[in-house]
């Protein structure tokens, strides 16, 4: 476990900076706000204790909130996503479970598997995020549309990021 520490510390800093410096400056459209920092939670090892997932989700979300002045909004969405991760992983697990020493990354389980897994988590994260942000169901469909478009954009960026992650560990 201790071997993972520097690698994931690097991942954390890299994903947060890519998010706040590059992606937040893209300004594609009001309907397209990609958030790829969630990749940090998505690529954590299978053996990560579940309580640690939640704590890390909270810290990641809060860091983004501080950079973006949205106190609590990203934290709540990322904690929700971290909560769902074990359930999504177990429902997509291969017949004899995940092999020890592997990671939830395309290099280990293929792009098809990874995208099913990432798409569900990213979409729920974005839905949660945008509905909490708007805080009313008044323009339900525009927020739904925004979540779906943003999730699509995020997945495209996640795909590009994973192409750069050549080594098996899933680090950038």
């Amino acid at each position: 476990m201790i071997n993972w520490l520097p690698r994931y510390l690097f991942n954390f800093v890299a994903f947060v900076l890519i998010q706040v410096l590059l992606l937040n400056n893209l300004q594609l459209s009001t309907f397209m706000n990609p958030y790829i920092y969630v990749l940090f939670i998505i690529t954590l090892p299978f053996s990560t204790p579940r309580w640690l997932l939640l704590i890390l989700g909270f810290i990641t979300g809060l860091t983004l909130d501080i950079f973006m002045n949205t106190l609590g909004i990203h934290a709540s969405a990322t904690v929700f996503m971290a909560f769902l991760r074990p359930f999504v992983l177990s429902s997509f697990s291969p017949r004899d479970g995940y092999e020890p020493g592997t990671l939830p990354v395309p290099a280990d389980y293929g792009f098809g598997w990874f995208f099913k897994y990432a798409a569900i988590l990213v979409t729920t994260h974005h839905l949660f995020l945008f509905f909490v942000e708007a805080f009313s169901m008044a323009d339900f469909f525009s927020i739904l549309w925004k979540s779906i478009l943003s999730a699509l954009a995020s997945l495209i960026f996640i795909f590009i990021a994973m192409l750069f992650a050549r080594n098996k560990s899933g680090t950038l």
């Binding site: 979300g61 909130d65 106190l71 609590g72 909004i73 934290a75 709540s76 904690v79 909490v132």
Partner: peptide, 12 residues
């Protein structure tokens, strides 16, 4: 999970 969500929402 509930505790962290309560903290987040109290921030919001």
């Amino acid at each position: 999970f509930l505790l962290l969500e309560i903290i987040s929402f109290s921030f919001i």
